[in-house]
Deep mutational scan, measured.
Amino acid sequence: KKKIKIYIENENGEKKTIEIEVEGDIDEIAKELAKKYNVKIVKIEP
């Protein structure tokens, strides 16, 4: 498992940072999160 930080922006332009532990393809997981929460991924840090 890797701990990563995902910087997101919602439709109101509010920026947030999510810190999660992931296993597998980080890009795939980030895309799923973006779709699920309707946010834009700004940056992903390993």
Rank of each mutant, 00 (worst) to 15 (best):
I18G: 00
E28M: 09
K3I: 10
I8T: 10
I20D: 00
I26R: 02
E14H: 10
K1R: 12
E11Q: 13
I8M: 14
E9H: 02
K15M: 15
I18R: 01
I18E: 01
K31F: 05
I18V: 06
K15A: 13
N38H: 12
Y37S: 14
N12K: 13
K15I: 15
K40P: 04
I20Q: 01
K15E: 12
E11Y: 10
I18N: 00
P46K: 08
K5M: 09
I29T: 03
A30F: 09
D25C: 07
I20Y: 05
Y37R: 07
A30K: 04
E28C: 10
L33Y: 14
N38D: 06
A34H: 05
I20S: 01
G24L: 02
I4T: 03
I4G: 02
E23G: 06
T17D: 03
K16T: 12
I26Y: 08
E21K: 03
A34I: 07
Y7C: 07
I8F: 15
A30D: 01
E11K: 10
K2A: 11
K2P: 07
K16Y: 15
V22L: 08
K36T: 04
A30M: 15
E28G: 06
K2L: 13
K35A: 06
E14Y: 10
T17C: 08
D27M: 13
I8D: 00
I4F: 15
K35S: 05
Y7D: 04
K15Q: 14
P46N: 10
E23M: 12
Y7G: 01
L33K: 00
K40R: 06
E19Y: 11
K36E: 08
G13E: 02
D25T: 05
I44G: 02
D25E: 07
E21H: 08
K35P: 14
G13S: 03
I41R: 00
I44R: 01
K36N: 05
V39L: 05
E14P: 02
E11R: 11
E23F: 12
N10D: 13
K5C: 08
V22D: 06
E45I: 10
K1C: 11
T17E: 07
L33E: 00
D27F: 12
A34R: 06
N10M: 15
K35N: 07
E32H: 09
L33F: 11
K43G: 10
P46V: 15
K16P: 01
A34N: 05
E32P: 00
K1I: 12
I41Y: 03
K43I: 10
I29Q: 04
E14A: 10
I29R: 04
K36W: 05
I44C: 06
E32W: 11
G24A: 04
E11F: 11
E28N: 05
K16D: 10
I6K: 00
K2I: 14
E21A: 06
K3V: 08
K31N: 11
K40W: 02
P46G: 09
Y37L: 15
K40Y: 04
V42H: 03
K35V: 05
E45L: 08
N38E: 05
E23Q: 09
T17W: 14
T17M: 12
L33A: 01
I4M: 10
I29K: 04
K2Q: 14
N10S: 13
E32M: 09
I18Y: 14
D27L: 13
K40F: 05
K5P: 00
V42N: 04
I8Q: 00
I20P: 00
K35I: 08
A34L: 06
N12T: 09
I26W: 13
N38A: 05
V42F: 01
L33R: 00
A30C: 12
K31V: 08
A34Q: 06
E21N: 06
V39Q: 04
K40M: 11
Y37K: 07
V39G: 15
L33M: 09
D25H: 05
K36V: 03
E19A: 05
K2T: 13
L33C: 10
K1Y: 07
D25Y: 04
V42P: 00
V42Q: 03
V39S: 13
K2M: 13
E14K: 08
K1G: 08
E14I: 09
E14R: 07
Y7F: 09
V22P: 03
Y37H: 15
I6C: 01
I6A: 02
E9R: 04
I44V: 08
T17L: 06
K5F: 07
N10P: 01
K31C: 08
I4C: 08
P46E: 14
T17S: 07
E21W: 14
E21G: 04
E14S: 07
A30P: 00
K2R: 14
G13K: 04
A30N: 01
E32L: 10
P46I: 15
E28Q: 12
I26M: 06
D25K: 03
I4Q: 01
E45Y: 07
D27E: 11
N38V: 02
V22F: 12
K15L: 14
D25F: 04
E21Y: 14
E45P: 02
N12A: 12
I26Q: 03
A30R: 05
Y7E: 07
K36Q: 07
E45K: 02
T17Y: 10
I4K: 01
E14F: 10
D27P: 04
K16F: 15
L33D: 00
A30H: 02
E9I: 13
E9T: 04
N10H: 13
V42M: 03
E19G: 01
I8N: 00
I18Q: 01
I29L: 11
K16H: 14
E11S: 12
K15N: 09
G13D: 03
K40L: 09
K3D: 01
L33W: 10
I18H: 02
G24C: 06
N10W: 15
I8K: 00
E23R: 08
I29G: 01
Y7Q: 06
K15T: 14
I41N: 01
K36H: 08
A34K: 09
N10C: 14
K15V: 15
N10V: 07
Y37T: 14
L33Q: 00
K36R: 12
I6Y: 03
K40I: 15
V39P: 06
P46C: 14
V39T: 05
K36G: 03
V22Q: 05
I41K: 00
K35T: 06
E32Q: 10
V42L: 12
V22I: 12
E23W: 14
T17V: 14
K15F: 14
I44Y: 05
N10G: 08
T17I: 14
I44W: 12
I6H: 00
P46S: 13
N38W: 04
E19M: 08
I20R: 02
V22S: 07
V42K: 02
E32F: 06
K31Q: 10
N12F: 13
